[in-house]
Design a protein around this nucleic acid. Structure first.
Lengths: 232, 232
DNA sequence: TCAAAAGTGTTGACTCTACACCCATGT
DNA sequence: ACATGGGTGTAGAGTCAACACTTTTGA
């Protein structure tokens, strides 16, 4: 017998950090179903398009990002038979981490895109169309976990950044304050995490901070441990 | 415009440990394409079937497993446009970890299923059809990583097991010898990892070993670290 | 001179590794 | 008795959390 056929979409969890808070890119849907409601950006995969290419295309369309400085990885696939009222649609979700400065507020395609506070969005049930609340929760959990054992936090930062800026990323994504002194030692003491540029920056008040760029290491050994993360 | 349509399959990376070696379940394909070659077990998702249900169905068909003691989780989705000569087929891969005793040697559906040494299979390029070598490599890496920070190793063991049996699981999956004394302390000292049953077992020669069952904890804190795992 | 932010030193608790050593059984 | 594998003690190195303290700027 011929195998059943269905449509395949990619949906994007695009995260950034603004003003010390984790934010996610959402669009207001211009067409049914769920017209007028908030949803994650995404769209159908073209006939001869690779999944990652489709995700990059959607990311570019929604954010205006062309020079891909963003981190983009596959998150998970969602395929409940009733997840889309139009019929059987399989969604391959991707997780993107982008720096704050790198994305125009609304360089969007057709729908208007905006940044929304992640914690507030997850606290409100039914705020997102389809099963996108589940996808968002999975994406946030993936990001939280990956900050622990990879140097991915730098993906949220501009090309050069201070240790304090990197710390605000951890604090925003984890939702926990970290000790600035120990964090500084940990980051600068882990080989390959960050590299000094020799330059310094100064905001109003306080001693100037050294500027770093992202180092060559992808994995952190030993990992950066979340406070109060006792097993389950 | 109407979205392009394609077929969706699930493929399974079913791992077990036999005689201190990691083994994977493969089938010899009875129909084209790749007829006569080795491949991971799998099949198309039915019209109204959830992805996890499809994976469980294929696992039952290929292994004869009915009382699902196995661990089963989504691994990753593979969607290169040219990955299947029949046309556009998206494959959602699942990772299953099963105990050695739990699976009949060949309780298979139509193709003959067999256990193959993972390391040997990965060393031989072109041994698996489609992109299944990539899927297998990703599955093995996922299993290796999850042994570090979860209590998943018990999924490879029968309902009750000794610390030494659990250690052989780690050694087989990681491909590294571990110190029996330190491993014992680590396992019994991590709360919720294993629970004593009070019973003992004895194989020929040597002091009888205590029998444990899997504990309530899913995540290990602190994690079990792979030896010689210095970052990258 | 003071406030603010960056960065360093130090200490006690904990963990890991390595290996010496004792325990309980089959033959 | 002795081989075989199960399990405990202990010492040194390393890591982490906590917090006192010094450095360098703007106002």
């Amino acid at each position: 017998m011929a195998p059943p056929r269905c449509s395949v979409a990619v949906d994007l969890v695009v995260l950034t950090v603004q003003d010390g808070r984790a934010r996610v890119l959402v669009v207001r849907r211009a067409i049914p179903p769920f017209r007028g409601e908030l949803a994650l950006p995404g769209g159908f995969v073209l006939a001869d398009e690779d999944l990652l290419d489709a995700a990059e295309r959607e990311l570019a369309e929604e954010t205006g990002l062309v020079d891909l400085r963003a981190h983009l990885e596959q998150l998970r696939t969602y395929g409940r038979p009733d997840r889309d009222p139009r019929g059987r649609v399989i969604s391959v979700a991707y997780l993107a981490l982008v720096p704050d400065a790198g994305v125009p507020v609304s360089g969007s395609d057709a729908d208007d895109a905006r940044w929304v506070d992640v914690e507030e969005l997850l606290a409100e049930p039914g705020a997102l169309a389809f099963d996108h609340a589940t996808i968002l929760a999975d994406g946030v959990e993936r990001a939280r976990a990956k900050l622990e054992y990879t140097s991915l936090a730098a993906a949220f930062c501009p090309p050069t950044f201070t240790v304090a800026e990197l710390r605000t990323v951890y604090e925003a994504v984890w939702g926990t304050p970290l000790d600035p002194r120990n964090f500084h030692r940990k980051v600068t003491g882990t080989p390959g995490f960050v590299e000094p540029t020799g330059r310094t920056t100064t905001r109003q008040g306080g001693r100037p901070a050294q500027l770093f760029r992202s180092g060559p290491s992808a994995r952190l050994h030993p990992p950066m441990l979340r406070p109060g993360d006792g097993g389950s």
